[in-house]
């Protein structure tokens, strides 16, 4: 299968180094303390954050830091086949864990001892790169909830098909069986907090592919920053400052 044609275009018309269209909206669920919808092309994810609040199950309470919990799920209608997506299967447990660990790494948990922060992410529409979209949505929702963070965490994936590194794989490219590298970074601190890869890659190719994903993360970060800035400005004007 040809994923990059000799003219250098991918199946959906992007060039190898191009990301899909990004779109984000903050405050989509009024009941939650913070919420956001994040879209990368046809992948659409909603995130809601509750907290910091009292720990529900006392036995889990931590005395020196906040408890971060994350629940990931996929809407039944998120893929074309409208199948029931079981909750708590291995894949969603794993993604929940990945998101929790990634977010925990940037939340200043020591400022909120004996409290609990719940992050709910749900995939509304899946078209590849759901992991990255979930992290980006969660970052926005956390920022919306005003939870203190070291930095934003942003994520993007990249892959390697037809001998070319490709940024931000869609479902079609993702299911091609090539490598899929998901990277999460703290853009200001320039630190990698998440790195996942299935399949194998040569060391030097891997470097290139990962570098590409990092560039993608940085692009996502500047977009998220813009959205947050705009959101803050709107808040300002609403409050009449």
């Amino acid at each position: 299968m040809e994923y990059v044609n000799p003219e250098g275009l991918r199946l959906d018309g992007r060039r190898p180094m191009e990301m899909r269209q990004l779109r984000a909206e903050i405050g989509v669920i009024s009941k939650a303390d913070g919420s956001a919808v994040f879209e990368m092309g046809n992948t659409k994810v909603i995130a809601a954050v509750y907290g910091p609040r009292e720990v529900q199950n006392r036995s889990q309470q931590l005395n020196d830091q906040a408890l971060v919990r994350c629940e990931y799920s996929m809407a039944n209608f998120s893929t074309g086949d409208r199948m029931r997506k079981p909750k708590g299967d291995r894949r969603s447990t794993e993604i929940s864990l990945v998101i929790r660990q990634t977010m925990e790494a940037c939340i200043l948990t020591h400022l909120m001892p004996r409290s609990q922060i719940d992050i709910f992410v749900q995939v509304l529409q899946a078209d590849g790169g759901t992991r990255s979209a979930c992290i980006n949505a969660a970052t926005l929702a956390l920022a919306d909830a005003g939870i203190p963070m070291r930095d934003l965490v942003t994520s993007c994936s990249s892959g390697f098909l037809n001998g070319t590194p490709l940024l931000d794989l869609n479902y079609l490219e993702d299911s091609a069986g090539g490598a899929d590298v998901t990277v999460g970074i703290l853009p200001k601190l320039d630190k990698v907090t998440l790195l996942q890869m299935d399949a194998k890659l040569q060391m030097d190719t891997f470097e290139n592919v990962m570098q590409l994903a990092i560039e993608g993360c940085k692009a996502v970060a500047s977009y998220i920053r813009e959205i947050l800035l705009e959101n803050t400005k709107q808040l300002e004007s609403r409050r009449g400052i």
Partner: peptide
């Protein structure tokens, strides 16, 4: 039509340049 014979709707993005 999928391999199992079910019919699904596929939506793909198409970027114009």
């Amino acid at each position: 039509k999928t391999k199992q014979g079910r019919v699904v709707k596929v939506v793909r993005e198409h970027y114009l340049r």
